[in-house]
Design a protein around this nucleic acid. Sequence first.
RNA 1: GGGCCCAUAGCUCAGCCCGGUAGAGCAGGCGGCUCUUAACCGCAAGAUCAGGGGUUCGAAUCCCCUUGGGCCCGCCA
Length: 494
Amino acid sequence: MSVPEESHLVQERRQKVERLRTRGIEPYPWSFPDRVPTSSVVERCRPLTPGATASGPDARVAGRLHTIRQHGKSAFLDLEDQSGALQLFLRVDEVGEPAYSEWLSDLDPGDLVGAEGSPMVTRRGEPSLLVRQLTLLAKAIAPPPEKFHGLKDAELRLRRRYLDLLSTPETRARFRARSLFVREIRHFFDEHDFLEVETPILGGVASGAAAQPFVTHSGYLDEDLQLRISLELPLKRLLVGGMERVYELGRIFRNEDLDVTHLPEFSMLEAYWAYTDYTDMRRLMEAMYLRLARRIAELLPGVPAAAEAPALFQPPFAVVDFVEALEEKSGLHGILDRSREQLRDLARAAGTTIPDASPTGKFLDKLFEHYVESTLTRPTFVVDHPVATTPLAKRHRSKPNRVERFELYCRGIELANAYSELNDPDDQVRRFGDQLAAKGTEFYAMDRDFIEALQYGMPPASGVGFGIDRAFMALTGIPTIKETVLFPPVRSRP
RNA sequence: GGGCCCAUAGCUCAGCCCGGUAGAGCAGGCGGCUCUUAACCGCAAGAUCAGGGGUUCGAAUCCCCUUGGGCCCGCCA
């Protein structure tokens, strides 16, 4: 990968910039007022017959030049803006010399230009703008990727996402869809009277999940700080404080390896709902995912997985018991009565290499992941996990050694993790303690300030969390998480 | 962390197996063309074959190392 700085292509474009300046033309002007989207010009062209020109006022459009087709004394230029594309039709009859020749000799694909003229339809039926005035809005010194094949190089696509965006309509559509998908999630919680809040990213000991944190240092406090690995514990403090429905949608950080479903920073939503339990939350998640599925089908109608989503996410979703599902798929029995060592050996037999010192629940999670997870292709609630897997959930009201928890899976991806939230401060201390007893490297860290908060009384509540990126993957069928974020992590330039 | 694969012009790709002067298309330059849309026709130009080392009379091609990327496995969602 070489920087195009020295190539003759760049030098030729720099010379064009100089030529423009000597003619008194500013290659980087300040604005282009009164422009309309190209889509509105295409709309004005719709009633016109081939060869006809619209009556009414001239239109002003602006965008990036994609291709230039010259035919001697006329030329066609494809202009792209966020709304779509429009062909500019340039004729020497219309604009005169020397403007015609000067414009064409100074412009290159990739330049940002503004154009003013009449909407028209060519004899071949292409909606166009018959140009009267053309204005350079920003000269592109570096040449854009190839016009037909676009940018294919995987490394360049990730390192220079702007090139991927400007050359690949599918990429633009995908990230527009992601943005509106996140907006839809916010709308859903807002409409259900949840308050969006922001809690600290930097803190003392990261807790609320089991993962390696990123560590940094505060010069002011002269203390090591950790970046959050979960949103859970601050939000529950807000339940104690009387906020009855809260959610946070934010970035969390886990210092682990990355692969097609893991990024070191990713977007997570957690919501907490006072005076409800995990059954209420199940209904809420069914409603949310049906709505998101419908939205994603509108946004990406050409993507098969998105188009199929509304039918797939019809409530009620299937429900399976964690223990029954695991025992059925694995052929094992008496899972709840096995010792930690027995479960570790079973997990080893299933091929996992998590450390021996991991908490008991990790082995159960691994066994479930190995035997059951990939079989869950339709939306399915897995419910009532063994206590050991889940230190922040309330014990099940009737099933011994279980918690009131569900995970929602679809297309092999986890789409929600929810509990009836544990609000007994003494049980919470014991459950953190069980985690610490394993003395492993990954566990739910004890958060004494949180225990103290629980002692003042947290209302019974349900809570849910899910990864935004993975939810987007599951609804759209995008296979790699890097393609769901605009700027995925890359190594520094060699 | 382990294994496999990839890196050639600004971009998209041939050439590599079987070593013998580095090719095409697009983009760019010059010339032609007033309805094209991957426009077309002609001419000329454009390369540290990712970087380094080795084998060889001779390496883009074979071998080793490094860097970056992709895929699979292991671990965190």
